[in-house]
Write a protein that binds this DNA or RNA. Structure first.
Lengths: 142, 142
DNA sequence: ATAAAGTACCTTGCATAACAAAGTACCTTA
DNA sequence: TAAGGTACTTTGTTATGCAAGGTACTTTAT
């Protein structure tokens, strides 16, 4: 597991949420979505997007209609179903909570760093040279 | 695919980031991490955490030492390696960018909703598919 | 006509990972 | 020595991102 892998992982699960958002703004087809995601610097490829759309369709969150194109084959234009809109609202909430949770954890680290840098205390940060709980304090809390 | 599934998905990939953060603040063992994650309302179970720790260890981001406990079997106390600290910094950046990207997409939807509710006009969307909407109404709102 | 190039959607196969559930091992207490 | 608690591990299932290759329709060039 390298860093790139972790970065890829971090983006997973967000895609579905972003797709629903984009579709919620009006009828779009796959290339529209790819453009929008790319401009938000969320990289997705066809092999990811098409199966995702199919899953969402089968789950009843999306519907689509075929539309003729003036410059190529017909396109599938997607829209949200009523269930899709409900789901999107729920995911909005989930995203907020998740971002809050992560920021809570990050800010705790920031606090910890500030505390460690502020004192000349370097007990816990670096080395396992320290010992066991005779100190009485868990390394995690306080 | 139901909503719960989507919520689970959304949390994926964030775990590794949160774990690294928690360990960065000092030596901890698995139960400490579970407590911290639970208090941040990020639910994780052993079957997820232990393999994750093993992966991070094998990737060279973590190290651990066995420590006797006064109330049970010995514990594995984890710390970040130098590589782990570097990686955490990179993931901090990744998280910031990801949150920014998602919030950009969400805010675009908000703008769209405001525009639709404010006017009775729904044709001005930037999408290239607009040539087809004789219907004139976005399927999302109203 | 036919070939080539562009656009759009679909499928297959692989690797990874979250999770449930069951298992192993150690320690304390009754 | 039995029971219960704590901690770490493993196995099997399922889901999913993605690369790569495929089908099909359309326009443009030869």
């Amino acid at each position: 597991m390298n860093i790139e892998n972790a970065q890829v992982q971090m983006r997973k699960g967000i895609l579905e949420f972003c797709i629903l958002h984009i579709i919620s703004r009006g009828e779009v087809y796959a290339s529209d979505m790819l453009d929008e995601l790319t401009s938000a610097r969320i990289m997705v490829v066809e092999g990811t997007l098409y199966p995702l759309l199919t899953r969402l369709k089968n789950a009843g969150l999306l519907d689509y209609k075929w539309v003729e194109s003036t410059s190529g084959p017909p396109r599938k234009y997607y829209i949200l179903t009523a269930l899709g809109r409900t789901s999107l609202n729920a995911l909005d909430e989930t995203w907020k909570e998740l971002a809050e949770s992560v920021n809570l954890i990050v800010s705790k680290t920031d606090q910890h760093r500030a505390a460690v840098n502020g004192k000349h205390e370097t007990l816990d940060m670096n080395r396992p040279g320290s010992h066991r709980d005779e100190s009485g304090l868990s390394p995690t809390e306080q």
